[in-house]
Amino acid sequence: MKKLILPFVLLISITLTAQEKKEAPKTQIVEASCGQCQFGMEGHGCELAVRIDGKSYFVDGTSIDSHGDAHANDGFCASIRKAAVVGEIKNNRFVVSAFKLLPEEKK
């Protein structure tokens, strides 16, 4: 019986460790902008979107107006910016749990 318990405990331990690693949120750098103005997405007015691996998603969890004036010269409707984000794609939208706009790169 003891010989069966040790392998079983090891198997459960390995499985739990693998699940914890898979579920840990990771920060990724994405392009962020107005979905309609810069990414050509169909929508109802200016709305924040991110582009991940060439595909654009509207964002839930933060808004276009939470990161400055969208219609300013450096705003989301006039430029595409880089952002560090944590989140996941659900129902073809990016549900963000963290969003940090990165400083613009010098040209």
Rank of each mutant, 00 (worst) to 15 (best):
Y57W: 05
L102W: 14
S63L: 03
D53R: 00
C77R: 07
D60R: 14
Q38I: 09
V9F: 12
L6G: 00
H71N: 08
K2V: 07
E105G: 02
K22E: 13
Q19W: 01
I80F: 10
K82R: 14
L10F: 13
I64W: 06
H67L: 11
A49P: 06
E88H: 11
N91C: 00
I52W: 07
T15I: 13
D53A: 02
T27E: 04
C37G: 07
G61C: 06
H67P: 10
C46T: 09
L6T: 11
A24R: 03
I12S: 13
M41I: 13
R51G: 01
K55Y: 03
I64G: 07
I80A: 06
Q28Y: 00
F8I: 12
V30T: 03
V50M: 07
I89E: 09
K82G: 01
E42W: 13
Q19S: 12
K106C: 08
Q36S: 10
I29Y: 02
N91H: 10
K106D: 15
K55M: 06
S97N: 08
E20G: 02
K100V: 06
F39W: 13
K100Q: 15
G61Q: 10
I12T: 14
H71M: 13
L16S: 13
E88L: 04
E88W: 00
E88V: 08
V50I: 15
I12Q: 09
D69N: 15
F39I: 12
F58I: 07
K107G: 02
A72P: 00
H44C: 01
M1H: 01
D65W: 09
I14M: 13
K90C: 03
E88Q: 13
K106A: 15
A24L: 13
S33I: 03
Q36K: 13
S97R: 11
Q36D: 07
M1V: 02
V85F: 06
A83N: 11
C34Y: 03
L11Y: 03
A49L: 05
I29W: 05
S66P: 00
C77L: 08
G75V: 06
Y57P: 09
D60I: 08
Q28R: 09
G61I: 00
E42Q: 15
I64R: 01
